[in-house]
């Protein structure tokens, strides 16, 4: 089988697209809530589980539409974001908050390590389902 100039050009374009296209963020399969609790300590300058502070509270996070925690003053950008928080949407957002939601009040580089994000999400899921923390 011979390969003509058109085929080579097509291959080169495909290769260029594959190389230049941004890869989807990697997601770790399973998280460790214990490690996630340690990672959550990074969030405490702004966030708390049960109350709004500088950032919104995390109780009720899973299944909540972005920008709707009662009593918290969100940015216009977060109010318009439109997603419902679940493992995938939280993972995507916390990797790079300012890139995912330009205009968010969360001025933070993000959690870059996929396993750390998975651990953090595992902890958030456990903590926010604890009736002693989130009634």
């Amino acid at each position: 089988m011979s390969i003509g100039p058109t085929s080579i050009a097509t291959l080169l374009v495909a290769l260029a697209v594959a190389v230049l296209a941004p890869a989807p963020a990697a997601r770790a399969a399973g998280g460790d809530a214990g490690r996630g609790e340690e990672i959550y300590h990074r969030c405490l300058a702004c966030h708390a589980l049960a109350v709004n502070r500088v950032g919104p509270k995390h109780c009720g996070l899973f299944g909540r539409k972005a920008g709707t925690a009662k009593g918290y003053q969100y940015s216009a950008a977060m109010k318009k974001y439109g997603v419902t928080w679940d493992d995938a949407t939280i993972d995507h957002f916390i990797e790079n908050p300012m890139k995912v939601v330009p205009g968010t009040k969360m001025g933070y580089a993000g959690v870059k390590d996929p396993q750390e994000r998975a651990d953090l999400i595992a902890y958030l899921k456990k903590a926010t389902s604890d009736p002693k923390i989130c009634d």
Binding site: H41, R42, L44
Partner: peptide, 17 residues
């Protein structure tokens, strides 16, 4: 201490960007 640790992390998340 928990707030101070959080503050360290917050600045670590600020400096690079």
């Amino acid at each position: 201490a928990s707030l101070e640790k959080g503050a360290v992390s917050a600045y670590l998340g600020a400096v690079p960007i």
